[in-house]
Design a binder for these strands. Structure first.
Lengths: 346, 346
DNA sequence: CTGTTAGCGCTTTCAC
DNA sequence: GTGAAAGCGCTAACAG
């Protein structure tokens, strides 16, 4: 438990002052080469290590940034965080993780606690909640702490965001199904108060309309991103008078449930019913009947979110220009929707 | 960008001293009820918020703990981190994430950088490397910073660890295959310089021997935890003069590769060849032919790791009693190894 | 009960 | 080129 050595210790040993040591260590220009060398050497000798906490208190920069996500054990969020960490690490930043579990009270609490910890910025995906107030976000802005949304954003003036084009992803997926000859495409939706789900719905709808197909609200069902919910909902669809010949799901998990249910009914995929999911979760690739899905390039999203932060951090004092990066999603076509015999991407 | 209010601001306003404010805010016993109330009110009015950085510098406790993992976008590590975060959060700790990508140089760098950031402890899974030196770990111990290993540990006196009983997990899995009538069980192993893989190998071997089966080193193959590697290795196995009738893999990914390869050879699972994986990755459950695997209860592992840390943090000054928690793995039997007609867990 | 003082470790004017 | 001194925001020992 050896006490940590400070610049005072090494100053004392060298009969100089702490200020000089500090300067020498920081490569200040006006310091003699000899003392610089001496200081550096003894610093190494005494195993000196800078206390970032003191620096942080002094400078007001902690070099910590907070990342808030609903939960971390989802491939999507974990991958985004990976991207963030990899991008920020070379710049000396540490990444603090908080989970909200989709509870807005926890979200607010997390923001406050990160603020107390003096983080230099907050990158977050908002929780799935009905909360109307912007108060906690405004507080961040007022304090001048950069706030950046990724994926699940909220429309707030002055706040940058990095998202994918969910509309386009959904449109492309639906168009693909139509190109495969599907005529009655159902949509498994989700809480449409969240932008991403709303946009997926809108993209789907637009593709239907643009292709002159009948848009039928009856086969758009709001459900939750769970395998079992997917099964239940699909059961409803199959029991209809005019069942669909394709399902576009806003989640890979409900898509999986749909597939299970369709098979249980003795129907063939993709011949009888085609299925497309969203998110490109790892398992969609591993399935024997692999699932077509929309990739969101989460690592890339994380990296870019980090870059946007770095930029804002640099221009701290200037007018904060709100920046909205919209990534392009990629449709990964696999077995569950490919009727032709051409070999699909695996 | 309103300047943050400090206790001095509120002291000034009330014509009292900062110390008093501090005491009032912290519920010090010897303070008049009236001033306490007054302070608390004006604090709220002025939107006062404690600067944890100053507290940290003063007290030497940052209430940050570092978590180092090879990578975060693996379900296992993400789940462990989830457990850690959930357990530590109520105690006021923040979790800082670092990734090593299995490079020991990065591991050392991460430890140093966390140390500079004055974390109150480090929880980690060591990287897959051949590094022999303990130097960086000893440094932590010398500084009195609690260090706790989870899953991938190293034998270091004075360092606690939370792991699962890999030997038992492997033994149980192998025994299960034997119980299903398998007589020639291959093992897809991994770098056995890492304890977990070594123990899985040893558990497998022991089960073979205890059941009077022939132990054949020729069907124990060291490979990497990738689907494609699993395919390659399985191809080798199937080409042998005496191919195995079961495969116990130390990884779910190689198990998946094995399954793909076995099917490609027109063989039936589990009738011709049974397969068991390790880790209970989410996809093993989702497969149409679901994969038997050994569950490591990662969230639980994270929670317990956090608890061990909290305990050590409490007894900081006392003799640090090294603690080794060994969790019991659970075999989840699914389609890939269940020959009987009983319905398996899905 | 409350004020005074000092100090956590570092950087940064301002002198010399 | 280097020293002296102040200050980041907070707490705690010592007075009174």
């Amino acid at each position: 438990m050896s006490k940590k050595t400070t610049i005072y210790d090494i100053a004392a040993k060298l009969n100089i002052t702490a200020a000089t040591v500090s300067r020498a260590l920081n490569g200040n220009s006006k310091i003699s080469e000899s003392t610089r060398k001496l200081v550096n050497e003894t610093a190494k000798e005494m195993n000196y290590e800078q206390n970032k906490l003191a620096l942080a208190l002094k400078s007001g920069k902690s070099f910590n940034i907070g990342v808030i996500v609903p939960r971390i054990d989802s491939n999507f969020f974990a991958s985004v965080i990976r991207g963030i960490e990899e991008e920020l690490h070379p710049h000396g930043y540490h990444v603090i993780i908080c989970q909200t579990h989709d509870q807005d009270t926890v979200e607010i609490e997390n923001i406050n606690s990160l603020l107390n910890a003096q983080v230099d910025g907050i990158l977050m995906s908002i929780s799935n909640s009905k909360l109307e107030t912007d108060e906690h976000f405004q507080k961040l802005l007022k304090k001048g702490v950069p706030l950046i949304f990724f994926d699940r954003r909220k429309e707030i003036s002055g706040v940058s965001s990095v998202t994918i084009d969910d509309f386009k992803g959904a449109y492309t997926a639906t168009q693909h199904l139509i190109d495969q000859g599907c005529k009655r495409i159902a949509h498994l939706s989700n809480n449409r108060e969240i932008q991403i789900f709303k946009n997926r719905y809108l993209g789907y709808k637009q593709a239907i309309i643009d292709n002159g197909l009948e848009f039928d609200e009856a086969i758009v069902i709001e459900t939750m991103s769970k395998v079992l919910e997917g099964r239940k909902t699909t059961k409803q669809l199959l029991a209809m008078e005019k069942p669909p010949d394709a399902i576009f799901s806003s989640s890979d998990f409900t898509a999986l449930g749909a597939i299970e249910e369709i098979k249980a009914h003795g129907l063939k995929i993709p011949e009888d019913i085609s299925v497309v999911g969203f998110s490109n979760e790892p398992f969609t690739r591993f399935m024997e009947l692999s699932i077509t899905s929309v990739d969101q390039s989460p690592i890339e999203m994380g990296r870019i979110t980090a870059q946007v932060f770095l930029e804002e951090a640099k221009n701290s004092k200037k007018i904060k220009s709100e920046k909205q990066v919209i990534l392009s999603p990629e449709l990964i076509i696999r077995d569950s929707s490919l009727k032709s015999t051409i070999v699909s991407e695996k």
